[in-house]
Design a protein around this nucleic acid. Structure first.
Lengths: 113, 113
DNA sequence: CTGACTACCTAGAGTCTCTAGGTAGTCGCC
DNA sequence: GGCGACTACCTAGAGACTCTAGGTAGTCAG
């Protein structure tokens, strides 16, 4: 059983997948909400288009890091697919955070910030 | 005259290009040296393969952010191509650092670190 | 009935990273 | 003499991700 990471060891790709896991760590959310919440909680610094988020959610679900379920909304409002972290997702988030901390200080060292 | 960034506004791609600019901010360096110096100054946290670095150097040079020159070495040692920041490269580095700082606190907020 | 909003989705283009090589020379060692 | 290790450069191609630019379908306000 190998460690399951969201991004490569360098954290260069699939970075946003990790951020999505980070948002989901507190509560179940649906795609459209994730877009808005990412923008809100980063004060606009990270503003992912839907075309980035929906495919990322599918990858995360395919890889077993999140699980989704459909919820029909009352009043004819569009249905939502709510996602939550799986156990594997929580592990991946923990590993991803370690990677992030390592990468962060490495990049700070190189950039001199 | 538009701002020239190394990565997109989200800093997800071309991230390593920015780090290369960061290394070059102090002195001229050649590709093979950049690989070693990146590993050294990040204590192994960022260890880019040559197949990543050489194409990145070509892109940076193509985009006018760095300039290269060949230096023949004495004693039949392999010649080196030394790169240094251009003025545009310095601007791009400054912008990239701002992006990095913004991204860093945004990601920290989302990851709760 | 038009625009704005919620909520989902996809195809395809463009990029970037990495693997897995290759070239060519020097040097130390057995 | 031959072998491996090292310096230094390079590329092709696979794979992965992000984003643009749409599309569907419904509600609601004016």
């Amino acid at each position: 059983m190998s460690e399951q990471r969201v991004a490569g060891p360098q954290l260069s790709r699939g970075e946003f997948g990790l951020l999505i896991l980070g948002l989901l760590r507190r509560r179940e959310m649906y795609g459209y909400e994730i877009v808005a919440e990412m923008r809100r909680s980063t004060e606009g610094a990270i503003d992912l288009p839907e075309g980035t988020v929906y495919p990322a959610l599918r990858r995360l679900e395919r890889d077993g890091l999140i699980g989704g379920r459909w919820l029909e909304m009352a009043g004819g409002a569009p249905r939502r697919r709510y996602y939550r972290l799986t156990q594997q997702g929580e592990k991946a988030l923990a590993l991803g955070r370690e990677d992030w901390l390592r990468f962060k200080s490495a990049a700070d060292a190189v950039l001199g910030s």
